[in-house]
Simulated scan of single mutants.
Amino acid sequence: MNPTIAVLLTCHNRKDKTLQCLTNLFVQQGLNVDFKFEVFLVDDASTDGTSEAVKSQFHSVKIIKGDGNLFWNRGMRLAWETAAASKNFDYYLWLNDDTFLLTDALITMLSGANINTIVCGSTYGLSNKKATYGGYVQQKLIEPNTFLQQCDYFNGNCVLICRDVFEKIGLLDSFFHHAVGDFDYSLRAKKAGVQFYVASKYIGTCENHVSLPKWRDPKVNLSARLNNLYSATSGCYPFEFFIYDRRHNGVLLAVRRFITLHLRALFPYLWFKNLNT
């Protein structure tokens, strides 16, 4: 039998990117004509007409409505939960809506998949052709080299998870709002003995979103810096990062990072001058 895949996405007010992502998904090549995949998209209260546009152009996509407070991790969890309740899929594919697949992405991912495995796809930026997201070894982003490579943890931009892994590890942890959930899932899987690999070649493009956050920017006033630090999308929400660190790196590192995050927000000028970051 041909494998069945549930493709999981979540979105909020990125209509053009979401539509481009789906367009690239539906023109995949190299797959058997009987190959089946179903798309589960959480629209987290978009106001830009995303749902209507998706319904018009991609009739088969199953749209799940969010309340606007799900963000990436909880939105992806809802998509996954909905998919798993509808059918016993062979694979689940996490896919960010700003990740634009190459035409052979799915066949590349599937060729590295096996029982009790996770395959992580690597992306590159169009501006400089350098790796942007994927799998890491000792905090270094791996570049594809035509072979499967084991990694320590991975970004959630494009990740293929087999049914056996899902049955063992379960869903993304609902404790996390936006960031960290993908890293947490990979480390939980690693502790459970799951093997995961970086796909043999790039599977798509995604621009790097790394920039100086508002909570570390000396040009932003203190109140705005602290508000940003405690926003779900800051990437370093202190209490969530504390739980993540305590779970995977120990309580001492968790306490250290918790304090450091606040020092960076309170004294960005001093931090930049003395620590050169």
Rank of each mutant, 00 (worst) to 15 (best):
P3T: 13
I5P: 05
A6I: 01
L8R: 03
C11E: 12
N13L: 07
D16W: 08
D16P: 04
K17Y: 06
C21W: 06
T23L: 14
F26A: 04
V27K: 13
Q28L: 08
L31A: 09
F35L: 03
F35T: 05
K36G: 14
K36P: 14
F37N: 00
E38S: 14
V42S: 01
S56Y: 01
S60L: 12
V61S: 01
G66D: 04
D67L: 04
G68P: 03
L70S: 05
L70H: 03
L78H: 06
L78G: 08
E81M: 15
T82L: 05
A83T: 02
A83M: 09
A84M: 08
K87Y: 09
F89H: 08
F89M: 04
Y91H: 12
Y92I: 02
L95P: 00
L95Q: 06
D97W: 02
T99W: 05
T103L: 12
L106Q: 06
M109H: 11
L110F: 07
I115E: 12
V119N: 01
G121V: 03
A131I: 12
A131W: 11
Q139I: 15
Q139R: 12
Q139T: 15
K140P: 04
E143T: 14
P144V: 08
P144Y: 09
L148N: 08
Y153V: 07
Y153A: 03
N155T: 08
G156M: 04
N157E: 13
C162P: 11
V165F: 11
K168D: 05
I169R: 04
I169N: 03
L171N: 14
L171E: 13
D173T: 02
D173S: 03
D173G: 05
S174Y: 08
G181Q: 01
D184K: 00
D184W: 00
Y185D: 01
S186F: 10
S186Q: 04
R188E: 05
K191I: 05
Q195E: 14
Y197G: 01
A199C: 05
A199S: 10
S200R: 14
S200D: 12
Y202P: 02
T205K: 04
T205S: 09
V210H: 12
V210D: 13
P213Y: 00
K214G: 13
K219N: 15
V220R: 01
L222K: 10
L222D: 11
L226Y: 06
N227V: 14
N227M: 14
N228S: 07
Y230Q: 03
Y230A: 00
C236M: 12
Y237G: 10
F239V: 11
F241M: 15
F242C: 00
F242P: 00
I243D: 01
Y244S: 03
Y244E: 02
D245C: 14
V251T: 10
V251A: 05
A254E: 00
V255P: 07
R256G: 15
I259P: 00
L261R: 07
L261V: 04
L263P: 09
R264L: 13
L266D: 06
L266P: 03
P268K: 03
L270S: 07
K273I: 06
L275T: 08
